[in-house]
Amino acid sequence: MASQGTKRSYEQMETDGERQNATEIRASVGKMIDGIGRFYIQMCTELKLSDYEGRLIQNSLTIERMVLSAFDERRNKYLEEHPSAGKDPKKTGGPIYKRVDRKWMRELVLYDKEEIRRIWRQANNGDDATAGLTHMMIWHSNLNDTTYQRTRALVRTGMDPRMCSLMQGSTLPRRSGAAGAAVKGVGTMVMELIRMIKRGINDRNFWRGENGRKTRSAYERMCNILKGKFQTAAQRAMMDQVRESRNPGNAEIEDLIFLARSALILRGSVAHKSCLPACVYGPAVASGYDFEKEGYSLVGIDPFKLLQNSQVYSLIRPNENPAHKSQLVWMACNSAAFEDLRVLSFIRGTKVSPRGKLSTRGVQIASNENMDAMESSTLELRSRYWAIRTRSGGNTNQQRASAGQISVQPAFSVQRNLPFDKPTIMAAFTGNTEGRTSDMRAEIIRMMEGAKPEEMSFQGRGVFELSDERAANPIVPSFDMSNEGSYFFGDNAEEYDN
């Protein structure tokens, strides 16, 4: 993207840094990872977990959730003011799984939030270390993106479920800051804005008074975040219109849905970061690795190297396929839920299948599930090659597409044709070009129609051997075009429920 120079890199967003050079960025990201790792080690000690239990991804998720809940100030305040039966607002906890007599047992633990905050700050040299908290939120978000298709949420806001490739980060909490905003897809931002506008339509006082002023500035800020994701002048001009509207209503909703559809071809720039579970960072720190000293990046080879040398386990339900569970977590670790499966298959070195073909449910185990038949197995999170994460949407291309997802959002900077089903997408653009945004709409449609099938995206960008740390010898991959490109292809993934 041309304006790259004016933006802070995501590592800076990730670490609240002012302008830093590459070495400083690597050190501050490393410091953040160190903090998460030290916190995780301490929690495993508190909970008396064995090494194996500490490497269980379900335990990692519970521990991450506990610290996120302990620092969720708004919710904590709300819980104190609106006490609900049987919930102690000062405590947080969740299921911890232990191996007892050759069987997995679930144990519900409860801790004072104050105590968890103390352990977290102690692991982070006394700081609140917001960057580390956001990092864990993005890992949870990436896992949700890989596990669930947001059909219901899309339909509720009037969008087409086939636009799911635009929904990265749709389950990120509001408090995820600049680093969170960077990884949100165009569809996620559109959905947040539509929800806001709908509230304004239904509630006369939404934009009024002292609160209304705050609401208005939040609305304009979200519009600017979305505008910054678009790469064409016409899309940005249309966002200006939406932002400046005196009284946002149905016309703005129409414009936003139009823009979301246009992003299936004229893709937005959305950041991709490899955020790993805390149970990967903990053992690495415990083994003596100093992330701050060595430096770390979320968008280069580092996460690949770390996963190459990590042992992570997962509980497996009786009829689940461990290899499929591994694929789910591998995609989440690489922030690749909406990437082209052919690119992923090449990088991973084994075939990556669409969601609907995987015999696996989510990673988390519900409290009512029976533990008797639970097994555990090693997650295979290694890769054959590594590639640089991208934040450009890439230019655009036609490809055989599917009944489910009709476009992709690249996660890796790797040369390819970008699949999208042009006739299906263009069919949504018939007729409606009147109104105050008509010239911009016409211009956007013209650009979409001009998108050429034979153009290559990320020209000359390749993948790298894991021994090639400096990215000196790019390998331009070859793809098996007979395979499906979309992950949520004609899909039956479970729906995400809060």
Rank of each mutant, 00 (worst) to 15 (best):
A131L: 05
L328P: 07
Y289H: 01
N395P: 06
G35R: 03
W386D: 13
N205C: 15
F304H: 12
S141A: 09
V186L: 01
T146I: 13
K113F: 10
A182F: 03
C164D: 08
D160K: 10
I201E: 14
M481F: 14
E210M: 12
S9N: 15
N417L: 00
T378Y: 07
A284F: 07
A428M: 06
S217V: 00
T350G: 09
Y78V: 06
M1K: 14
Q364V: 06
I425Y: 05
A129L: 00
R74I: 04
R174E: 10
L315K: 04
A153L: 06
D421I: 14
D290I: 10
C223V: 12
R75P: 08
I138Y: 10
R121F: 06
T215Y: 05
G349V: 04
T23V: 00
A153R: 15
S367Y: 02
A123W: 05
L381E: 10
M189F: 02
L133Y: 03
K184I: 14
G362E: 15
S478E: 11
Y148A: 11
G268N: 02
V408D: 09
D439N: 06
P277M: 10
G393H: 08
R213F: 13
L466F: 14
S310P: 05
T6F: 13
T147F: 10
T350H: 00
Q168N: 02
A427M: 14
L307Y: 15
I25M: 01
L315E: 01
E294T: 00
I265A: 15
L226R: 14
K357M: 11
D160G: 06
S407K: 10
Q58H: 03
I57W: 08
W120F: 13
G393L: 04
W207S: 05
C279M: 12
D51C: 04
I265Y: 12
G462E: 08
E11Y: 05
E64W: 07
V299K: 13
F291I: 13
A278I: 13
M222C: 04
A85G: 01
P173L: 08
N368D: 05
R216T: 05
T430V: 13
Q327N: 08
I197V: 06
M371V: 14
C164Q: 14
R174A: 04
A366D: 04
F230L: 08
V109D: 07
E320N: 10
E375N: 10
